[in-house]
Computed example of a mutant assay.
Amino acid sequence: MKHGSQPRRTPPRAERACPCGLPAAYGECCGRFHAGAAAPTAEALMRSRYAAFAVEDEAYLLRTWHPTTRPPRVEFERGMRWTGLEIEDVSGGSPVHTDGTVTFRAGYTYRGRPGELREKSRFARHQGAWTYLDAVATA
Results as ranks from 00 to 15, higher is better:
residue 42 A to Q: 10
residue 7 P to E: 04
residue 63 R to I: 00
residue 76 F to G: 15
residue 29 C to F: 08
residue 48 S to Q: 02
residue 14 A to P: 01
residue 135 A to C: 09
residue 107 G to D: 03
residue 23 P to R: 03
residue 55 V to H: 05
residue 42 A to V: 05
residue 9 R to Q: 13
residue 81 R to T: 15
residue 58 E to A: 15
residue 98 T to G: 10
residue 68 T to I: 13
residue 92 G to K: 14
residue 28 E to D: 07
residue 136 V to Y: 09
residue 105 R to E: 08
residue 89 D to I: 00
residue 55 V to A: 15
residue 102 V to Y: 13
residue 38 A to L: 10
residue 134 D to P: 04
residue 27 G to D: 03
residue 70 R to D: 05
residue 106 A to M: 05
residue 123 F to W: 13
residue 109 T to M: 00
residue 70 R to H: 13
residue 128 G to V: 14
residue 12 P to R: 13
residue 48 S to F: 05
residue 131 T to C: 15
residue 49 R to H: 07
residue 59 A to R: 13
residue 123 F to V: 01
residue 131 T to E: 09
residue 106 A to V: 01
residue 110 Y to I: 10
residue 93 G to K: 10
residue 106 A to L: 01
residue 139 A to N: 09
residue 99 D to W: 14
residue 27 G to M: 02
residue 74 V to L: 14
residue 13 R to G: 12
residue 132 Y to M: 08
residue 58 E to Y: 05
residue 31 G to N: 10
residue 82 W to D: 14
residue 61 L to Y: 06
residue 123 F to N: 09
residue 109 T to Y: 00
residue 84 G to T: 03
residue 86 E to Q: 09
residue 33 F to T: 03
residue 111 R to S: 12
residue 84 G to E: 02
residue 15 E to A: 12
residue 108 Y to N: 07
residue 63 R to E: 11
residue 123 F to I: 00
residue 38 A to C: 11
residue 94 S to F: 00
residue 47 R to Y: 04
residue 20 C to H: 10
residue 130 W to S: 14
residue 103 T to V: 07
residue 61 L to R: 06
residue 74 V to W: 11
residue 31 G to C: 13
residue 118 R to L: 04
residue 114 P to E: 13
residue 18 C to V: 12
residue 82 W to V: 12
residue 138 T to S: 04
residue 79 G to W: 04
residue 110 Y to H: 15
residue 31 G to K: 04
residue 134 D to W: 09
residue 108 Y to E: 00
residue 117 L to D: 12
residue 6 Q to D: 09
residue 12 P to Q: 05
residue 69 T to Q: 09
residue 14 A to L: 04
residue 66 H to T: 05
residue 131 T to A: 11
residue 14 A to R: 08
residue 67 P to K: 14
residue 94 S to A: 14
residue 48 S to K: 11
residue 95 P to H: 07
residue 97 H to L: 00
residue 11 P to R: 11
residue 86 E to Y: 00
residue 48 S to D: 13
residue 113 R to F: 13
residue 6 Q to N: 07
residue 118 R to W: 03
residue 124 A to Y: 07
residue 80 M to K: 14
residue 22 L to F: 01
residue 28 E to M: 08
residue 11 P to F: 03
residue 3 H to I: 02
residue 39 A to L: 06
residue 109 T to L: 04
residue 9 R to A: 15
residue 118 R to P: 02
residue 16 R to G: 07
residue 102 V to A: 03
residue 24 A to N: 06
residue 20 C to W: 05
residue 45 L to F: 10
residue 83 T to Q: 02
residue 46 M to S: 02
residue 25 A to N: 08
residue 14 A to D: 12
residue 28 E to V: 14
residue 137 A to I: 03
residue 21 G to Q: 08
residue 33 F to M: 14
residue 103 T to I: 08
residue 49 R to Y: 03
residue 37 A to W: 12
residue 27 G to W: 06
residue 126 H to C: 01
residue 37 A to Q: 12
residue 105 R to M: 01
residue 108 Y to D: 00
residue 2 K to C: 01
residue 63 R to M: 09
residue 137 A to M: 01
residue 56 E to Q: 15
residue 93 G to H: 10
residue 64 T to A: 09
residue 1 M to H: 05
residue 135 A to Y: 06
residue 39 A to P: 15
residue 122 R to A: 11
residue 80 M to D: 09
residue 138 T to K: 12
residue 127 Q to A: 14
residue 93 G to C: 06
residue 120 K to V: 03
residue 42 A to P: 04
residue 12 P to M: 04
residue 138 T to V: 15
residue 125 R to T: 02
residue 46 M to Y: 02
